[in-house]
Computed example of a mutant assay.
Amino acid sequence: MNEYGRSPTSPVEWTVMESGIGPLLLAATDQGLVSVVFHAGPRVRERALARIGDRLGAEPVESASGLLTGAIRELSAYFAGELREFGLPLDWTLSSGFNRQVLRELATGVPYGTVVGYGDLAGRVGQPAAAQAVGAAMGSNPLPVVVPCHRVVESHGGLGGFGGGLETKRQLLALEGVLPEPLF
């Protein structure tokens, strides 16, 4: 077992899919989707796969057995505006403790087309003074889009930060109808 409780023989498969926000690297284990990485060009992909392999104790292999079929199908439907709630099995191995608690609350408690403040999300997990820690949890989210950290905003109406870049966050919020589509 590695430090994340995973047997080094557990398979980790990956692929890159095109999306409305650019290429996404998807990685899955036999437990479910484990990672989504934005802007998955060759250099980003190489670094992400090395990091995933190190953390999971298994060399990721390009998708071969179909572990990613459901993720591709659901993400494609989401970007086409046809899916509002993901039903994928998720592998939470790459998050733990407070971060995992916050991310699970986000995944189940902040529906499509809505937003929540960092402080409000902190309160939902019983830590009302932990807004900055919620921000850190968003920054460490291994499953963006599926675990919708783009729906977390500042209390005064600002977008806040986003690992995929603020333009990507704007695009996701526009897709969900929270923000207007850009004029050009």
Results as ranks from 00 to 15, higher is better:
G70D: 15
L88N: 14
G81I: 01
S19L: 11
V16G: 01
E105N: 04
F162A: 01
G97A: 14
G158F: 02
A77S: 11
F184Q: 11
Y118E: 02
G165S: 08
Y78C: 08
G161Y: 11
V153C: 08
G139L: 15
A58S: 03
V34N: 02
A71I: 00
V115A: 15
V12A: 11
L90R: 02
P148D: 09
G87P: 00
G5V: 09
Q31F: 10
T168K: 12
G113N: 09
L143M: 12
Y78V: 10
L166T: 12
G109T: 11
P11D: 03
L183H: 05
L173T: 05
E62I: 09
G70K: 10
T93K: 02
L56Y: 08
S19C: 08
Q132F: 13
A130P: 03
V146S: 05
Q132L: 14
G139P: 10
S65N: 08
Y112K: 02
E46D: 15
Y118T: 02
N99L: 03
E18P: 04
Y112Q: 02
G165W: 10
V116F: 00
G177A: 00
P180K: 01
P148R: 07
G139Y: 14
F79L: 07
S76H: 12
R55I: 01
R124I: 05
L88A: 15
V115R: 14
G22H: 13
V146Q: 03
G126L: 13
V152S: 04
S155I: 07
A130K: 12
S10C: 09
T69W: 11
G160H: 11
P148N: 09
T9V: 03
S76M: 05
E154G: 05
G123S: 00
E105I: 02
G126M: 13
S155V: 08
A27F: 14
V44R: 12
E46A: 15
I72E: 14
G139M: 15
Q127G: 00
P128V: 08
R51P: 00
N141M: 11
L67K: 12
L173E: 13
G66F: 04
G164T: 10
S140T: 03
G165V: 10
L94T: 11
V36S: 04
P148W: 02
A122D: 06
A130R: 12
V110K: 03
G163Q: 15
F38R: 01
L103A: 11
N99H: 15
A77G: 06
F98I: 01
I21K: 06
G163V: 14
V115P: 13
P60E: 09
R100P: 01
T114A: 05
G57Q: 06
G123L: 00
W14A: 06
H39G: 02
G70P: 05
V125I: 12
P180M: 01
P23N: 00
T29K: 05
E46T: 15
V115H: 13
L94Q: 09
I72H: 06
F79C: 10
L159G: 12
R51V: 07
V61C: 05
V12M: 12
G97N: 11
L106M: 13
E62F: 12
K169P: 13
L33A: 04
A50G: 04
H156Q: 12
L106A: 13
T9C: 01
S95P: 01
R100G: 02
S155W: 10
R73C: 05
A64H: 14
A122H: 07
V16S: 01
S35P: 00
E3M: 09
L88Y: 08
A77T: 09
G109D: 14
L173H: 11
P60L: 07
I21T: 06
